[in-house]
Amino acid sequence: MNQKTICIHGCKEKKDLTGSVSVPIYQSATFAHPAVGKSTGYDYSRQQNPTREHLECTVAALEGGSHAVAFTSGMAAITALMELFQPGDHIIASEDLYGGSIRLFEQINKKNGLRFSYADTSDATKIEALITKDTKAVFIETPSNPTMIVTDIKAVSELTKPRGILLIVDNTFLTPYFQKPLQLGADIIVHSGTKYLCGHNDTLAGFLVTEDQKLGEKLRHLLMSLGSCLSPFDSWLLIRGIKTLAIRMEKQQENAIAIAHWLKTHPKVKKVYYAGLSEHPSYEISSTQASGFGSMISFTVDSEATAVQVLEKVELILYAESLGGVETLITYPMLQTHADLTKEERDARGINETLLRLSVGLEFAEDLISDLKQALD
Rank of each mutant, 00 (worst) to 15 (best):
N2S: 10
T5P: 01
T5L: 12
I6R: 05
I6W: 08
C7H: 09
H9M: 08
G10V: 03
G10R: 07
K12Y: 11
K14H: 10
G19D: 09
H33T: 08
P34K: 01
A35C: 04
V36P: 11
Y44K: 05
S45A: 12
S45Y: 12
T51D: 10
T51E: 03
R52S: 05
E53C: 03
L55R: 10
A60S: 11
S66V: 06
A70G: 08
F71T: 07
S73E: 07
A80M: 00
I91W: 06
A93P: 08
D96S: 08
L97F: 13
Y98V: 05
I102D: 09
R103D: 14
K110L: 04
N112L: 12
G113L: 01
F116V: 00
Y118I: 05
D120H: 12
D120E: 14
A124D: 13
K126N: 11
A129T: 05
I131S: 01
K133E: 15
E141L: 11
E141N: 10
T147P: 06
V150L: 11
I153P: 05
K154W: 03
A155I: 02
G164I: 04
G164K: 07
L166S: 09
T175W: 00
P176A: 10
Y177V: 02
F178C: 04
F178G: 02
Q179N: 14
Q183T: 04
K195T: 06
K195F: 13
L197F: 01
G199M: 07
G199F: 00
H200K: 13
N201M: 12
D202G: 05
L208T: 01
D212E: 14
L219K: 08
H221E: 15
L222Y: 06
L222R: 06
L223E: 09
S225R: 13
L226C: 01
C229K: 12
F233M: 13
D234G: 02
D234N: 15
W236L: 01
L238G: 10
I239Y: 08
G241N: 06
G241L: 01
K243L: 03
M249A: 13
M249S: 10
Q253M: 02
N255I: 00
A256N: 04
A256R: 02
K264H: 13
K264V: 04
H266I: 00
S278A: 13
Y283L: 00
T288C: 06
A290Y: 03
M296Y: 10
M296H: 13
M296K: 08
I297E: 12
T300P: 04
T300L: 01
S303T: 06
E304R: 07
V308I: 14
V310G: 02
K313D: 10
K313M: 04
K313T: 11
K313S: 07
V314I: 15
Y319M: 04
Y319L: 02
A320E: 15
A320N: 14
T331F: 04
T331I: 13
Q336F: 07
T337G: 14
H338W: 11
D340V: 03
T342S: 15
A348F: 06
G350R: 05
L356H: 04
R357Q: 12
L358P: 05
G361K: 00
L362T: 10
L362N: 10
L362I: 02
S370Q: 15
D371K: 03
Q374N: 12
A375T: 02
D377I: 07
D377P: 09
